[in-house]
């Protein structure tokens, strides 16, 4: 089983280090790095794939697929939809709609993608507004759709 690196603790430590101007480095296990790279290769993603700061605006089930629309106006990507084929929500601490993607890890292992995501939710009970979201999927596609 792969490890979740985009954790709440990690986010808070990273923030504290940034505030002090100190560098904060994560150490990723070699096995996990291999699985992350496998996911990127399969999807043709570069090192800069990130949904960070995109706001989830809609979640629908289309057949077996999970389709998530998001507002990318404050994000770092051009696309605004991600489709998890044969998507399965493994963990969802807070409602997705209205939440923002923060950091995430993506793995490919045994024919399945696992997408661990840290979110910021207006409904979070935690002071930093953090929550977890985890999906699995057999494939992942990103789209830029006209709104």
């Amino acid at each position: 089983m792969s490890t979740r690196y985009s954790t709440k603790e990690d986010y808070l430590q990273f923030a504290a280090a940034a505030e002090k101007g100190v560098e904060y480095k994560q150490v990723v296990a070699e096995k996990d790095l291999r699985l992350m790279n496998a996911a990127k290769r399969r999807l043709g993603l570069n090192d800069h794939f990130t949904l960070g700061d995109c706001k989830i605006t809609g979640v629908i089930n289309r057949g077996l697929d999970l389709v998530i629309d998001f507002d990318n106006s404050q994000g770092f990507v051009n696309y605004n939809q991600i489709v998890f084929e044969n998507g399965n929500v493994v963990e969802m601490e807070y409602p997705m709609e209205g939440s923002f993607f923060l950091n995430h890890d993506l793995y490919f292992e045994n024919g399945l993608f696992t997408f661990y995501c840290l979110i910021w939710s207006p409904e979070s009970q935690e002071s930093a507004g953090l929550g977890y979201l985890t999906f699995t999927a057999t494939d992942i596609k990103v789209n830029q759709i006209e709104k």
Binding site: F14, A15, A18, H48, T50, N103, A128
Partner: peptide, 8 residues
């Protein structure tokens, strides 16, 4: 909120 950064 933050500071935060995609750690890349």
């Amino acid at each position: 909120i933050g500071p935060e950064c995609d750690n890349r």
